[in-house]
Each structure stands twice: as C-alpha cells, then as structure tokens.
C-alpha cells in the first residue's frame, strides 16, 4: 500500500503490525523496516541518481541483498517513527563565489543542510533510538591547518543569498546564516564552517528550517563570535519544533569559522 504524502508526513508516527514491513523513502535514502516478535530489522539503501521522492509503503517487496541490522527489544511494540537530525560533525561549505565582505557589512545567507535520519522504535520509556543514517552518503572534509584542524562533512551545495534558489526538498533543512564583518578590513573568505550540532530542526509551512546562526567577524587573527538563535527563524512563519539540537549551544562563543583566501 503506497500513501500519497505531504512533506511532513514522513515524520509522523507509524504503526507496524507483527511480521509486517515498511518501506520509507526520503530523497536518495530508502529505509526497510520489518517487525518480528520483539525484534525489528532495519536496512538502508541509496538511489544512484539524486531524487526528492518521498514514499511510505507497507508490506512492499524488499530488494535482495539488503544488510539488515537487528534490534532486540525488551518489550514488544508496534510504534515506529523517523526523526530528522542534524549531523554531529561540523559542516564545511563554500559560498558560490569567494565572498568579499567590506568592513561593517552584514549579509544573510541561506544554507541547505542534508538531514540524518534516526528510526525510533516504541514510545515513552521503552523508546529505542537506532543508528543515525545520512540521507546522502556524506563526504569528509578538513577545516583548519594541515597540522591541526577539525574533521567536517563537506556541504556540496553552495550558500545562497536568495531562498528561492533552493527547491523544496524533504531531506534538507534551511539554515539562515548572518555574517557581520565588524573588523576594519574586508572579509575575504572562501570557506565557512558551521557547527550543525547546535541547530534545532523546525517544521515550517513549506519546508524544514533550523535556527539562525549569527557570526560576528573581528579580524584575521581573531576567532569569530558565534551565536545560535534560541527561537525559530521568522521565515518559517508557523514553525513547530521537530528535533532539538544535539548539544545545547553556549550563549555567545568564539570559534574559527572562516577559511580565508590566501
């Protein structure tokens, strides 16, 4: 049985009968879940071509060769939910052209962040949180010096000034990033490092959003002041919190955020 879906149906709780299965697709990622007595089997696969397709299908035929992971539960449950998450590692992205921001200038970017999905079994005290699975296999990247730095995920979509540059996608959340150059020199940056673990995920009218990140740049040798908004972005209009941040962000902290052009 295939259900016609709106973008937010993916995150609604599902009921799975014993010895039944569910196929759940969000973009490139398809999850295959089968419920046995006390045990659940979960496998995943990726589409070869990029797609924005969404699908929830009960008792669908699963392809052969899937590698299932077995979750043994204390108590039998029929509840299944898929929760969108932010990646735990920082994200490294580039503006579509090297960014030159004059002194005292302030600009707002939008960054489209691919989600990580966590299948959650059961409810209340007996909830079992399974592995986080990226909607698209991520690519590793490095932010910092060759001798010292931070392992990141590469964000292969560019940061954009206009929101309509992004298509409405079920497997991505939009993060508004405000950059304020408070130094006396212009900011000439080629990379921006975003700590996604501090971001909440909100359900807006059309798409998923995260809270806004504000970066105040003070100069080449200084770290930037980074603050994460505690409220949802105004662009989300009627936002509803879907997933809280992995870590609570410090109020206003200093971080190396920009990779400067040499």
């Amino acid at each position: 049985m295939t259900t016609s879906l709106s973008i937010f149906d993916l995150w609604s709780p599902l009921e799975v009968e014993q010895d039944s299965s569910v196929l759940w697709q969000c973009g490139n990622l398809t999850l295959y879940v089968r419920r046995l007595e006390y045990d659940w089997l979960i496998a995943s696969s990726y589409a070869d071509e990029d797609t924005d397709e969404m699908r929830i299908e009960y008792d669908a035929e699963f392809p052969e060769g899937l590698e299932f992971q077995r979750y043994a539960l204390n108590q039998d449950t029929s509840h299944l939910r898929f929760i969108p998450n932010m990646p735990r590692r920082p994200l490294l992205f580039r503006p579509n052209h090297p960014l030159v921001l004059p002194s005292q200038a302030k600009i707002l970017f939008y960054v489209s962040i691919p989600l990580w999905i966590t299948p959650v079994l059961g409810q209340g005290a007996d909830t079992v949180v399974t592995n986080e699975i990226p909607v698209k296999p991520p690519s590793d990247s490095w932010f910092g010096e060759h001798t010292e730095g931070q392992l990141c995920f590469a964000l292969r979509t560019f940061a954009r000034r206009r929101l309509d540059a992004f298509s409405v996608s079920p497997h991505r959340a939009i993060c508004p990033v405000l950059i304020h150059n408070q130094s006396s020199l212009s900011l000439d940056c080629v990379q921006v490092c975003l700590r996604a673990k501090y971001l909440n995920i909100y359900q807006g009218i059309q798409r998923l959003w995260t809270n806004q990140v504000s970066v105040h740049y003070h100069g080449t040798h200084l770290l930037s002041n980074v603050s994460y908004a505690t409220k949802p972005p105004t662009q989300a209009r009627t936002p509803m919190l879907l997933t809280a941040a992995i870590e609570h962000p410090p109020h206003n902290f200093l971080l190396k955020t920009f990779g400067l052009s040499e």
Partner: peptide, 11 residues
C-alpha cells in the same frame, strides 16, 4: 578522488 570514500574534499 571526489567519489572515493576515504578522500577529503578539503584540502
């Protein structure tokens, strides 16, 4: 290099 699972995008 971009498609290899062990390679880094940056450097």
């Amino acid at each position: 290099a971009a498609k290899n699972k062990y390679s880094l995008d940056e450097p």
